[in-house]
């Protein structure tokens, strides 16, 4: 039986993209359902931020067994950043992680991300997309900081939904 690497790989690749597409759409369908059931008194952003918090907690908890302090703080930090990036990569984003200018500082760059496109498709305000990502990241860090007794912060420097070409976030040790 003949085997075509092209056919096998592209079939998997297309299935992956279809699944990633479904993830985004499913999120916004549930958002819409939640809003309809919640009624007009509830602000859509509040519902979305609550969802982001739940997502952040889940992701944060899943990271704890994967991070190892024994490898040193810098390796630990890079692993944390890569694990965060991995969540978005699974959804179809292209994300790079690199060291920042200062010690214990890492930059996470989202060069492409499907989430603003989904938001636009479902008529959701672009800023909501930025704020939700921020909330997910802050919630992840909250758990990680508590578990490892660290004080890391993450800040948004650029955002695709704001028309800035890429999302750029700085993950760094709080020196205050």
């Amino acid at each position: 039986m003949s085997f075509s690497a092209e056919k096998e790989i592209t079939k998997l690749w297309k299935n992956l993209h279809a699944a990633q597409d479904e993830i985004g759409k499913t999120y916004y369908r549930w958002r819409e359902a939640a809003l309809q059931l919640a009624g007009s008194d509830v602000k859509p952003l509040d519902v979305s931020l609550k969802t982001a918090e739940i997502m952040g907690m889940e992701i944060g908890k899943s990271l704890l067994p994967r991070l190892n302090w024994l490898k040193g703080e810098e390796v630990w930090l890079m692993n944390l950043a890569k694990n965060i990036a991995g969540n978005w990569i699974n959804h179809g984003a292209i994300v790079d992680v690199e060291n920042g200018e200062n010690p214990f500082e890492v930059l996470i760059k989202w060069k492409r991300c499907p989430w603003p496109t989904f938001a636009k498709e479902y008529g959701v305000d672009m800023e909501e997309d930025v704020l939700c990502c921020d909330r997910i990241l802050q919630t992840i860090l909250k758990d990680v900081n508590e578990f490892f007794n660290t004080d890391y912060t993450i800040e948004t420097l650029k955002a695709i939904p704001r028309g800035e070409g890429e999302c750029l976030r700085r993950l760094s040790k709080n020196n205050k």
């Binding site: 690497a5 092209e6 790989i9 990569i89 292209i94 492409r112």
Partner: peptide, 11 residues
């Protein structure tokens, strides 16, 4: 090479 880093050959 795909945009998301996968590879496959085409004859």
């Amino acid at each position: 090479k795909t945009y998301d880093g996968y590879h496959f050959p085409v004859e």
